[in-house]
Computed example of a mutant assay.
Amino acid sequence: MTHVPHQLSAEFPDKAEKIAQMEQSNAHFAKLSNEYDEVNRTVHRAETNVAPMDELAESEVRRKRAALKDEIYGMLTKEA
């Protein structure tokens, strides 16, 4: 498969190390990260017509990806 855009490390390059660390130390963060990756791959497959979906369904998964990204960003920037 080709490079999938919007991966967390590409979205937050300055937080790549913290993402890796939190994926190992925080089960909730790891779950969110895995869910984000799954939803992101779904969006990518729809955009590249590998697994096309109707406009409404694609819009919904894009919204889900944005919500997960917002939650993940909140966890990454939360003061210790």
Rank of each mutant, 00 (worst) to 15 (best):
M1Q: 10
H3W: 00
H3S: 14
V4W: 00
V4T: 10
P5M: 01
H6M: 02
Q7N: 08
Q7W: 04
Q7S: 09
L8S: 14
L8M: 12
E11F: 08
E11K: 14
E11R: 15
F12A: 06
P13V: 02
P13H: 02
P13N: 06
D14E: 13
D14Q: 12
D14T: 03
K15C: 15
A16R: 01
A16N: 08
A16M: 02
E17H: 08
E17C: 01
K18H: 02
I19A: 03
A20S: 13
A20I: 05
Q21P: 07
Q21S: 13
Q21G: 15
M22R: 09
E23V: 03
Q24S: 10
S25H: 14
S25N: 09
N26L: 08
N26H: 07
H28Y: 09
H28N: 08
F29Y: 15
A30W: 08
L32A: 15
L32V: 12
S33E: 03
S33L: 04
S33W: 02
S33Q: 11
E35K: 14
E35N: 13
Y36M: 10
D37C: 11
E38T: 15
E38P: 13
E38A: 15
V39N: 05
R41W: 01
R41N: 04
V43R: 14
V43F: 06
V43G: 09
V43Y: 04
V43W: 02
H44P: 05
H44I: 06
E47I: 00
T48F: 01
T48C: 11
T48L: 01
P52Y: 06
P52F: 09
M53A: 04
D54C: 01
E55D: 06
E55Y: 08
E55K: 04
L56N: 09
A57L: 15
E58P: 01
S59G: 11
V61M: 12
V61Y: 07
V61L: 11
R63M: 04
K64W: 00
R65E: 00
R65F: 00
L68Y: 02
L68F: 05
K69N: 07
D70T: 05
E71A: 15
I72S: 09
I72Y: 12
I72H: 11
I72R: 12
Y73I: 00
G74M: 11
G74N: 10
L76M: 04
T77V: 03
K78H: 12
K78Y: 10
A80D: 05
